[in-house]
């Protein structure tokens, strides 16, 4: 028996998220007293694959196949379920990101395996198998029992620590039979910015709300973000007004993020916005209105005009971090 963890790569490289998943899989496997198999799909070189061992994988199954270059949910489901069976996996772990959300539910049906999605910590018990997750978009948490032989877990990003291991993982190539005709979703064009820090990966996020008054006032937000190595975000009214792109909308129906630090500037903190940021480890609020609900969610707050405070903060950061 094993725990199988699906580790996605980005142009042949893993990221922190991949190692969080393997660390999590290792801890789940310890509870069940079984080994960890990591599955990688795509061109990843041996040195990169071995990194998965550094976080606790015992074995790495690597699949390279031209038909798997873009994500076809049906074909990925078929391949991952094959490996689940081959490795006799009782728990299958994926990220709760766009890829995980696309394939985990399909695998759940294919393997008749209960799905625990968006988990934020280890299972509290393994018999009955009980997982802990956010519900009502962070307004509550639930203990959910998974009643099936195989269990599928999707882990929320940035919710589990990295645990290094001195495992020397073995690497096994696995080939699978896929025909071009199996691919029903044909990617005809891709429009992608490479090298940009993704909001969901960022450890620090600087975010602006309606209090910024206009898209012309975003300079200091971008400057502070750049200095801190942070991503920029915004509240819903800002993206609805077209001041910022929709990809930056953070909240209930936008992105749900869990950075180490979230700096909310001119954001009142509507319940729908808080839903997107409540998992941040620290929240800083800068707002002119002392009664803004954001101060109830924040750890540190300044009541004042963002247009005065941001430039000051920027010069302090420049003095102290350069």
């Amino acid at each position: 028996m094993t725990v199988l963890v699906f580790t996605e790569n980005w142009d042949g490289k893993f990221k922190k998220l991949s190692f969080e998943l393997v660390s999590y899989a290792r801890e789940v496997a310890e509870k069940l007293n079984v080994s960890v198999v990591a599955l990688s799909i795509g061109e990843v070189d041996e040195d990169e694959l071995k990194k998965l061992g550094d976080y606790g994988a015992d074995k790495i199954v690597s699949i390279t196949n031209d038909h798997l270059k873009t994500l076809d949910n049906q074909v990925y489901t078929k391949v991952i379920s094959e490996v689940t069976q081959k490795e006799n996996a009782k728990v299958l772990i994926l990220s709760h990101n766009n890829t995980g959300k696309a394939i985990a539910p399909r695998l759940s049906v294919k393997l008749k395996a209960a799905l625990g999605s968006g988990l934020i910590r280890l299972p509290s018990e393994v018999d009955p198998f009980t997982v802990y997750k956010k519900v009502f978009t962070g307004k509550a948490f639930a203990n959910v029992i998974l009643n099936s032989d195989i269990k599928i877990l999707t882990l929320s990003q940035n919710s589990f620590k990295l645990i290094s291991s001195d495992n020397k993982a073995t690497i096994e190539e696995y080939s699978t039979d896929i025909q071009a005709s199996d691919i029903k979703t044909k990617v005809t064009s891709t429009d992608k910015q490479t090298g940009k820090l993704l909001l969901t990966d960022a450890e620090i996020v600087v975010s602006g709300g309606r209090g910024m008054k206009s898209s012309d006032n975003w300079g200091p937000i971008e400057e502070l973000a750049k200095l801190l190595g942070a991503a920029t975000a915004c509240s819903r009214p800002v993206s609805d007004e077209g001041w910022r792109p929709h990809e930056e909308h953070t909240g209930q129906t936008g992105k749900i993020i869990a950075p180490n630090l979230y700096i909310a500037v001119g954001i009142s903190g509507a319940i729908q916005h808080l839903a997107g940021i409540s998992s941040s480890k620290y929240i800083v609020a800068i707002n002119i209105d002392p009664d803004a609900p954001i101060f109830e969610a924040a750890d540190y707050g300044i009541v004042g005009d963002a247009h005065k405070i941001l430039p000051e903060l920027i010069s302090i950061v420049k003095e102290n971090l350069s």
């Binding site: 948490f141 639930a142 959910v144 029992i145 998974l146 800083v284 609020a285 750890d299 300044i302 903060l313």
Partner: peptide, 30 residues
């Protein structure tokens, strides 16, 4: 068949109150 059972729910722990910083002393935030 049902495969999952939401056994119990919990509300988030109340957060400690926000530390307010004097707008004349932004350095304290840093």
């Amino acid at each position: 068949e049902l495969l999952t059972d939401h056994k119990s729910f919990e509300l988030p722990q109340p957060k400690p109150p926000c530390k307010m910083i004097d707008p004349e002393n932004v350095k304290e935030l840093f």
